[in-house]
Nucleic acid binder design. Structure first.
Length: 487
DNA sequence: ATAGGGTTAG
């Protein structure tokens, strides 16, 4: 039997308050409090005095949430949710400070059901009208479940006029729901806008593929904001991402202008900004600038390495990609899905079949990284280019999900390369069923027939295309180089 | 202030 706890809750609260800014200390305290039983109700006191307050739980939940974002953290994003159950068991009543953290935890762990359950809890406890909670609900619904519908509903039912944070949360929800028109309209009608509002719209548009639009909004922000105000990290990262993904000289020029701004204003090259810069130069094929940005980023993270490795792998620097990968591991960084994607890409392009297969194996067995469709696509490409189409087919058959057009496409390219006509035509049928509007596929199949000397079948493909009303995709042409067709 | 809104690699 546990003895009565000798701790006063007031002292416990002071302890937590003192260490609140340091989440790691709080987690250590959490472990201590659990083992010492300080969080348990005191059986020797009356029922009323026994009730522990929400405060210690709120502090600890928040510490877990802050740490779950940190690299190599031991606490999952759902840790606050588990604390919530412990809190209810201990008889502490959650208050208005509890739910914002819990809702953020729900959305960070992508649990729509948790968000809805917490919403129900707020309603039952009469806390749903709290400004902070309503704002968190809008944000949580924006990231899980049915974004625009539920987020909008909470927003519309907010008491009084919604504040700026709630507007920003809804703006983000509209962007995440893919309703960029609604987001734009909502932004225009907002009574006030701050840097977060502008950044949300810039990143939302860019995420939705409207990179030029995102840049225009950013220029609007520059004109709107009073001169001399420094741009914040998140704003710069968002606009650099738009620049990275806006092809052509336009994206590069804008990206360089942003970089110039950063140099002029001596903006610290944090991991986020360094990664964004490495990615921007990398996507535009400026490997020299890409490497310099990488070297200048003092606080590197796995993402930073990934941006560099992807750039090298995609721009003919396969050997350097492999060498940098070794450096990355030597420095103790743990490769993830994206790292391995870059490595497999490099191996496929360099024709390093065995090395690529080795890393694919190690990725699963040693690093416990679950392969995505794109990883399988790389392996199929890797085997296919080497003429090992039987093994490539085996890989496809062993995939835990149905192959998509990109995987079949990789195999099709391999078949064409090695004149495996029968398999090529079989894959062609699958591809036309999966993506009937992709003109490139029909052209490839037709070329397979033609190269095989089957003129009749080749001509028939042309007719099939016409009958299906398929036009060549605008802005895409097919060039036959050394027998392989590339868009 | 014990709490809310925006950010990177494919």
């Amino acid at each position: 039997m546990r003895r009565a706890s000798p701790y006063s809750y007031a002292a416990l609260e002071r302890l937590l308050r003192e260490h609140f800014p340091f989440p790691r200390r709080l987690l250590q305290l959490h472990a201590l409090l659990l083992t010492s039983g300080a969080l348990l109700p005191d059986p020797e006191r009356s029922a009323a005095a026994t009730a522990i307050t929400a405060f210690p739980y709120n502090c600890l939940a928040h510490a877990h949430l802050r740490l779950s974002a940190a690299p190599s953290s031991s606490s999952p994003p759902s840790a606050p949710l588990r604390l919530f159950s412990a809190m209810l068991t201990a008889g502490a009543r959650p208050n208005c400070h509890s739910f914002p953290t819990l809702l953020k935890s729900a959305s960070a762990s992508g649990s729509a059901s948790a968000a809805a359950a917490l919403h129900a809890q707020c309603l039952r406890r009469g806390l749903a009208a709290d400004r902070f909670i309503a704002c968190s609900l809008v944000s949580a619904y924006g990231r899980t479940g049915h974004p625009s519908r539920d987020a909008r509903k909470v927003f519309d039912e907010m008491e009084g006029s919604p504040d700026l944070a709630a507007c920003n949360a809804l703006l983000d929800a509209l962007c995440l729901a893919g309703d960029l028109e609604a987001a734009g309209t909502f932004f225009e009608r907002m009574a006030a806008r701050d840097a977060v509002s502008w950044t949300t719209l810039v990143s939302g548009l860019s995420r939705g593929g409207r990179h030029r639009c995102a840049l225009e909004v950013f220029r609007g922000f520059l004109l709107d904001s009073s001169m001399g105000r420094r741009l914040e990290e998140a704003t710069l990262v968002s606009v650099l991402s738009a620049c990275a993904n806006l092809g052509g000289a336009e994206g590069l020029a804008a990206g360089m202008a942003v970089h110039a701004y950063m140099v002029c204003h001596e903006v610290e090259l944090t991991a986020f900004l360094g990664t964004a810069l490495v990615d921007m130069y990398g996507k535009h094929g400026r490997l020299g600038c890409c490497r310099s940005a990488f070297d200048a980023a003092h606080d590197k993270k796995v993402c930073t390495w990934n941006a560099l490795l992807s750039a090298l792998a995609n721009h003919g620097m396969e050997t350097e990609a492999l060498v940098k990968f070794e450096m990355m591991r030597a420095e103790g960084f743990l490769p993830n899905q994206i790292t391995f994607l870059a490595m497999l890409t490099a191996c496929a392009r360099a024709g390093l079949v065995e090395v690529g297969l080795y890393w694919f194996e190690a990725m699963v067995a040693e690093y416990r990284v679950t392969p995505l469709m794109v990883h399988y696509g790389c392996v199929v490409d890797l085997l296919g280019r080497a003429g090992r189409s039987v093994e490539a087919v085996q890989v496809i058959e062993r995939m835990p999900f149905a192959p998509d057009a990109s995987v079949w496409g990789a195999l099709l390219t391999a078949c064409k390369l090695h004149g495996n006509v029968l398999l090529a035509l079989e894959i062609g049928q699958k591809l036309m069923a999966l993506e009937p509007q992709q003109s490139g596929r029909y052209v490839t199949i037709r070329n397979v027939y033609l190269e095989d000397g089957n003129w009749q079948a080749g001509m028939r493909m042309g007719e099939v295309m016409q009958e299906a009303g398929i036009k060549k995709t605008v802005g895409q042409s097919s060039v036959v180089l050394h027998g392989s067709s590339s868009p």
